[in-house]
Nucleic acid binder design. Structure first.
Lengths: 319, 319
DNA sequence: TTGTATGCGTTATCAT
DNA sequence: ATGATAACGCATACAA
């Protein structure tokens, strides 16, 4: 592999001049510039970017932590991240964690080891305290509201959205409302759960802990939820489903089993994933692509900001 | 940032010894080892991985080129790639190309610049000739059959699969068969097209170029296909749909419009995506996760091999 | 078992 | 405008 020293020799100049030419710096005569360029051509020279990284202390790489990519929520978020990263001329280093803390730790360590310039954590498994420890090594952005501190975030007010949706259902007559969620333990999940119970307090509704279904990610999970709902007495008359994919599973299962939607069961999905439009599912639109873009922006500009993104109810045929 | 020289000074040893301790090399006394470890702890030292990269000439990074991640086909492929990369202790650098040649070129150049140790191209936009130019810089694996040469590949025999599916439909009485595809121009697409026309030759069936629909990726595209099919006279009685997501769009549209499947229109989807199981769509199962794993294997073991993966018809309710 | 010296390829500083 | 030289931080051949 040829390096700039070789080029310098060939072109009869110093390495500095070569570097200048390579990086389009000013103060280099046309003559020498051409000599260098000629050497570059002749040797098919290409920079060893690792040397650049070492020298500069930057890699133009952003780490992206997410549990899995084969789910519309994260796929759309990733899409936005990829788009914006491209505009900022940065590449993405992917950490598919399956919610394993050890893999998240790896990502944080890459920040410390300077393999990445910043880190976007789409959904975390480890504690905020641990994440904060790595803050000195580079910017980190999250998808949940973090007040104060040096962590940026782009987030949805899930408490408010959930409450609004519940109130909406209440207004049209529902009092037995359940919800489906992925993990029970995330910050966003806890906010939604709080909204759920606050709502029940507010309207003095009976508590039905069995109306809460977790581990809901895919179509099959929707199917599973419905089969459990069918065995309940009384069953919920409406469900908030935090992924349209799960909502789709419920809707399709209902169709198969002649369960009428929304008469027998009302459904509000989340994310406005493509399938929701197709199946005419009422959903809360979350602008995931926009969120992804903003996360990249936050990481690269290093402004520490907490940006709330608003979600909107899209009324379709399942309520 | 502290470096190994600092550690050496602190521990009263040489940088070599520090390096040995850091990399678990033999021939270092417990005493000195502990001294080094103590210094590491005290300074919260972490390697600058870029220096390692430069020194070793390797990064433990694999580049992954794909047009988009928010499609089940690529999402599942990526899932397999991520799994296997984890086992091999490598990370993934993502190149979302949108089929733009310039972005694919970037990925190839990263190989040349030694930012990645190998490259997996899930679907390519640029020519084989161009890809081959970059082969000297590192292993490359593709998802299409490449005979001879130094490029590895993990592929499906799309000609055979397509032909089998067509013959299957022919046997149960279909003679007016169409197909939906994403890009017209990829190698895999051309193989399928060849099978399509060879099939028509073989059984002396009339040619219906209008039965071919391209740019089919999502649910909406399925919807669009159906609306065009409805206006045809005669319309096709069966469709091969190279993504279950598109097939789902067709099936759902048919349900809405009281078009009976498979009586009015038979559908065979591809990939056995989750939605296919949910909607009981007959499909060709392509083990994408396994393919992804194998691609990583090929890139990292550097064996130049062309591995065919077999696909299987899963008969469900749409034929 | 340990240390010295050099290479990895580039960028940045400073002098001229 | 140009160049010599020192970082950048680590790995490793070779010597001891």
């Amino acid at each position: 592999m040829t390096n700039i020293r070789d080029l310098a020799k060939m072109a009869g100049v110093s390495v500095t001049t070569v570097s200048r030419v390579l990086n389009n710096h000013p103060y280099v005569s046309e003559e020498k510039k051409n000599a260098v360029l000629k050497a570059v051509k002749a040797t098919r020279y290409h920079k060893n970017i690792n040397a650049v990284h070492l020298s500069k202390g930057k890699t133009k790489l952003i780490g992206v932590v997410l549990p899995f990519t084969d789910h519309p929520y994260f796929a759309l978020l990733l899409k936005g991240i990829a788009k914006q990263a491209l505009e900022y001329n940065h590449k993405l280093l992917l950490f598919q964690t399956d919610y394993m803390e050890s893999r998240e730790t790896e990502a944080l360590q890459m920040l410390q080891q300077k393999q990445i310039d910043g880190l976007i954590i789409c959904s975390r498994a480890c504690s905020m305290r641990k994440i904060e420890e790595y803050l000195p090594f580079g910017p980190i952005a999250l998808c949940e509201c973090v007040k104060g501190g040096e962590i940026s975030s782009t987030y949805i007010d899930h408490y408010k959205i959930f409450m609004d949706a519940l109130e909406f259902l209440y207004r049209i007559g529902h009092t037995k409302i359940g919800y489906c969620i992925g993990r029970k333990s995330g910050t966003n999940s806890r906010n939604r759960d709080k909204a759920y119970w606050d709502f029940h307090e507010k309207y003095h509704l009976p508590h039905h802990p069995e109306y809460i279904f977790d581990q809901c990610y895919d179509y099959e999970d929707g199917e599973r939820v419905l089969s459990r709902v069918k065995e309940m007495d009384p069953p919920p008359s409406a469900l908030l489903v935090t992924s349209d994919q799960v909502a789709a599973g419920i809707v399709i299962s209902c169709n198969k089993q002649q369960i009428s939607i929304p008469d027998d069961l009302a459904i509000i999905g989340f994310d406005n994933e493509p399938i929701a439009g197709m199946l005419n599912i009422t959903t809360i639109d979350i602008p995931l692509v926009e969120m992804g873009r903003n996360l990249v922006h936050q990481v690269l500009t290093k402004e520490i900001k907490n940006k709330e993104i608003s979600a909107t109810l899209i009324e379709r045929g399942t309520v």
